Computed example of a mutant assay.
Amino acid sequence: MTSLYSPEQGCVVITGAGTGIGEACARLFAAQGARVALIGRRRAPLERVAAQTGGIVLEGDAASAADWERFNAALAVEGGVASLIACAGGLGAGSALETGDDDWAGAMRANLDTAFVSARACLPQLIARRGSIVMVASIASLAAGPGVCGYTTAKHALIGLMRSLARDYGPQGVRVNAVCPGWVRTPMADEEMLPLIERYGETLEQAYARVCAEVPMRRAAGAEEIARVCGFLASDAASIVTGAVIVADGGASVVDVPTLAFERV
Rank of each mutant, 00 (worst) to 15 (best):
A88W: 04
I127H: 00
D101G: 14
R175S: 03
C149E: 09
M188P: 00
Q172N: 08
S164H: 06
N111A: 02
V134P: 02
M162L: 10
D102C: 01
A144W: 06
E192N: 11
Q125W: 09
C180L: 13
M135E: 06
V176K: 07
G150Q: 09
G90I: 01
V134L: 02
T99C: 13
E198C: 06
I127P: 04
R175Y: 10
V179K: 05
V81W: 10
N111Y: 00
S95T: 15
C180K: 05
T152D: 14
A154F: 07
R163M: 05
R175E: 08
P195F: 04
G173A: 06
L91R: 13
V184G: 05
E198R: 15
V174N: 11
G182R: 03
D190V: 12
A121N: 06
H156L: 02
A93V: 13
C87N: 15
A128T: 10
S83V: 12
A143W: 07
G92E: 07
Q125H: 14
I159R: 12
H156V: 00
A143C: 08
A143K: 12
S132T: 13
G160T: 00
V136N: 09
A178V: 09
E192F: 11
A154R: 01
M162V: 15
D102P: 00
L194V: 14
M162D: 04
V134D: 01
A96Q: 02
V81S: 07
G182P: 06
V81Y: 09
Y151G: 03
A178S: 15
P171R: 03
P181H: 11
T99P: 01
A157D: 10
G160K: 06
S164A: 15
A119P: 01
K155C: 10
A154C: 00
N111H: 11
G160Y: 04
A157M: 05
A166E: 07
A105P: 00
A93K: 13
P124V: 08
A119R: 00
K155M: 11
V179T: 07
R163A: 10
T99A: 04
P146W: 05
A82P: 01
A140G: 08
A154W: 04
A107M: 06
R175I: 11
G170C: 07
L196A: 13
A93C: 01
G173L: 09
G182S: 07
L196S: 12
Q172K: 12
V134W: 05
G90H: 10
V136W: 08
R120C: 07
I159G: 03
L161A: 04
V136L: 15
R109L: 01
D103S: 14
S141V: 08
A105H: 15
L91D: 09
D168T: 15
A189P: 08
F116V: 09
V117W: 04
R175A: 07
Q172P: 03
D190C: 01
L123H: 04
G131C: 05
K155P: 05
A140W: 03
M193Q: 13
I85S: 09
L112S: 04
A82Y: 12
W104S: 04
G182W: 08
I197G: 04
G89H: 07
G170E: 00
C87M: 02
L126N: 12
